[in-house]
Nucleic acid binder design. Sequence first.
DNA 1: TGAAATTACGCTCTACGTAAGCATT
DNA 2: AATGCTTACGTAGAGCGTAATTTCA
Lengths: 280, 280
Amino acid sequence: MIEMYLLEQLVAVAKHKTLLAAADALHITQPALTRSMKKLEQLFGFALFDHHANRIEINENGLLASEYAKRILQLEQEMIDQVTHLEQSKHTIFLESCAPAPMIYLQQRLALLFSTYSVQSHLTNSEGKIIGALKQNKCQLAIVSAPVKDPNIISSKIFTEHLYLSVMPAHPASQKEKISFQEIDGETFLLHGSLGIWKDVVNEKLSHSRFIVQDQMQDLSVLLASSSLPAFTTNISWNIYPRQEKRLEIPIVDHDASTTFYLAYHRKDQDIFKALLPET
Amino acid sequence: MIEMYLLEQLVAVAKHKTLLAAADALHITQPALTRSMKKLEQLFGFALFDHHANRIEINENGLLASEYAKRILQLEQEMIDQVTHLEQSKHTIFLESCAPAPMIYLQQRLALLFSTYSVQSHLTNSEGKIIGALKQNKCQLAIVSAPVKDPNIISSKIFTEHLYLSVMPAHPASQKEKISFQEIDGETFLLHGSLGIWKDVVNEKLSHSRFIVQDQMQDLSVLLASSSLPAFTTNISWNIYPRQEKRLEIPIVDHDASTTFYLAYHRKDQDIFKALLPET
DNA sequence: TGAAATTACGCTCTACGTAAGCATT
DNA sequence: AATGCTTACGTAGAGCGTAATTTCA
């Protein structure tokens, strides 16, 4: 049997071309590598290198072996990652979401409902990746904007998120009862950095606008209170962050200013997560 | 990093359910395994087994880990096999054939022409497997009954093998100048055990016959000399084995009593193997 | 009482580092 | 002379075996 450390060292030698460089990278000494490579050749029963007086050159055998070694080391790392994730998933609810406010809102509800678990949530723009993560058991819960077509996965409607324009009273739109994207395209907005699928809507409908991006939600709140720049809120975000007292919220009437979200989870977890759904 | 011996031991424990049985299979002692499994759990950072007082039960984590371990060990074995084969192929010409006499004949010619190489030949019934072996570089030369459709592989006609009925003078057919399968279907024949693609022809055309099978060519020769049972020879086999002096050979006229064989090899080996081909 | 896992202790083998040697550029 | 691989020697540690202990059926 060929041990892992030998494979790791072989890969390093194949990569760095000389024993000295590889030894440096591995934080061992050169003689140790000389011995290891000789041991490898002895285990295989033939040469993996052309041994010259003061240099070695990997040969065809060594190259093939190092390719395999790389794959073996990758597989070992995958084993560690996957088993570790399996263990973590027993104490953690992993949540993938395509939109920020629904994510934070659900995260808070999960923390209350499943207080013995910890919750890890992650925002991803691509819904395909989210569904992939769910199918590969990398997460147990997903927030998506359309039902998942898979017999083993249940998609339940949870709520519809409506976008609102948030303005100071001095803003021209403040008196309106409703507004459209077209009317405000071209203005400069304060925006959070992570928008999920809303990013597509904003880019398309407000293509002439400038956006002042702020990634930290707390800093954004300070800006919202002090600045006269328009911004956006949603009916879901009101559950999470306090409404800015001075600001007025004007509903946006466009069709794609509203998105219905679905909670997706494996059928086997149906009983666990049904407490999250609205009563019917 | 998790060493191979730990993975091997984990797989054994997962397979044999108890440490004692696994230790037995691995030819080590039970305490060694106890320590190894504890070491594995320490490396992962969590339990892979439910530890009871006097029994241990693998858990979900351990099962997943052992599945990966199995794959890693398989990959390691594949590495050893493939690299070893690559090394061997430098000193050995591997020949796969779908018919016995062409194989032996070519093996003899190879031994003469490439005296610094050793030759390993192998008879396989399935031509698909032969072509697969050639494409995967498991052999450099193949004898097949139809050209291989692959731009990287050259198929050159080498010869056509004709089947002859071999009978003693007393046999009714001995006076004939030619004969067909139909005329002899139902008789009992002496036959070699390995026929390659000829097996299909024999089974189909002589479905009413009985066959006395002898795997050892030398023993078959003795039988052929002493027995009055009919048998088969081919124009190719005459190059290999001495003709039985007492016997007469009657050509078989059926279309599928003749097969044209092709030598298949990678384009890069074209120059090496062209010496084997008939002059044009 | 027997079967099976764990703990304790001692040994051996091995992978490593240090130091020195040697060949090539 | 500098670079880089190899050889020689000593050491610390790791993995294994033996023996004793514990627990459950």
